[in-house]
Design a protein around this nucleic acid. Structure first.
Length: 277
DNA sequence: CGATCTAACGACGATCCCTG
DNA sequence: CAGGGATCGTCGTTAGATCG
């Protein structure tokens, strides 16, 4: 029985196997975890339980990356950076994985329910243990998770579309058909630059300017916000809100943030302007 | 020699599937 | 088709290595 740290080869093998299962899981195809484990034991000299645990570690890495993971393998922390590197290697060799269109899962019928589940924003009170959070954020920074989501235009548009449907359905649900018809997809019709994506309404008719941020990751996945968006948020404090859509590719969930934003999140400058003098 | 890090076991409930 | 043995799937905790 092999002991000691997992080698890069072992990590690469188990990561590849994990993604094979994850692909089945996302596609809704049945698969046998125990059989996968046995196959792996033949190629890696590790015990069943050791492999099982490593699967949970991989889930934790994917969570940090703001990606889907296999629900049955609850993220286990205290993993090594070599495992993170192995996951990064796999993703580098399979660019299609991150580029895949959101919502490729077979339509279940229920999925098209227009109204979204909206929960409370992550707060200090329901914060995971600091050590875990730190490990998560370390990975997020190392791989620029926020930038990746921002550059994924298909993901962003799909999220906005989803919120658009949600706003209309919510207004209809309270009998404001008139307002529902007036909801506008600003970023689609006028282009970016307004500082918000959707112009909607509260049931009482007050204006609601919604900036949508979408991720496939968990609720604490960092995101990018532009200076312009911050300016508009400040100028139109009472109307503007940030709509965070997370777990998008599986079961979209959401929370809203209202100005002042720095009451909820830590704003970190990530780009600097260089000007000639 | 204590603090910190890392690997990983075994119990147990759920589910499957064979047999009588 | 009911009972029960076999397999699958989940998950919390802990011992040992390493480092300073």
């Amino acid at each position: 029985m092999s002991n000691g740290p997992w080698t890069d080869e072992e990590n690469d093998l188990i990561v590849a196997d994990y993604f094979a299962m994850l692909a089945d899981d996302i596609a809704g195809r049945p698969y046998n975890k125990a059989e996968h484990n046995r196959q792996l034991q033949e190629r890696i000299d590790r015990t069943r339980t050791s492999i099982e645990f490593k699967h949970q570690n991989i889930s934790a890495v994917l969570k940090g990356l703001g990606e889907d993971w296999i629900p049955g393998y609850k993220p286990a922390f205290n993993f090594q950076m070599t495992l993170v590197d192995a996951v990064a290697r796999w993703l580098a060799f399979h660019p299609d994985w991150l580029g895949r269109m959101p919502g490729m899962r077979p339509v279940t019928g229920l999925q098209e329910a227009a109204q979204l589940w909206i929960g409370p924003p992550p707060t200090l009170s329901n914060q995971p243990p600091p050590q875990e959070l730190e490990q998560m954020l370390h990975i997020a920074r190392k791989f620029d998770v926020a930038g990746r989501d921002e550059r994924n235009r298909a993901l962003g548009r799909a999220g906005e579309k989803r919120v658009l449907a949600h706003e209309r359905a919510s207004l209809q649900a309270v009998g404001r058909e008139d307002l529902a018809r007036k909801v506008r997809w600003v970023s689609e019709e006028d282009g970016d630059g307004a500082g918000y994506d959707i112009e909607s309404f509260a049931p009482d008719g007050r204006s609601r300017l919604i900036e949508v941020k979408t991720t496939n990751g968990w609720e604490r996945t960092p995101f990018l916000i532009t200076r312009n968006e911050l300016v508009v948020a400040e100028e139109r404090r009472s109307e503007w809100c940030l709509f965070r859509l997370w777990n998008f590719s599986r079961e979209p969930k959401a929370f809203e943030l209202h100005p002042p934003l720095d009451a909820h999140v830590a704003l970190t400058a990530t780009t600097f302007q260089a000007s000639f003098q």
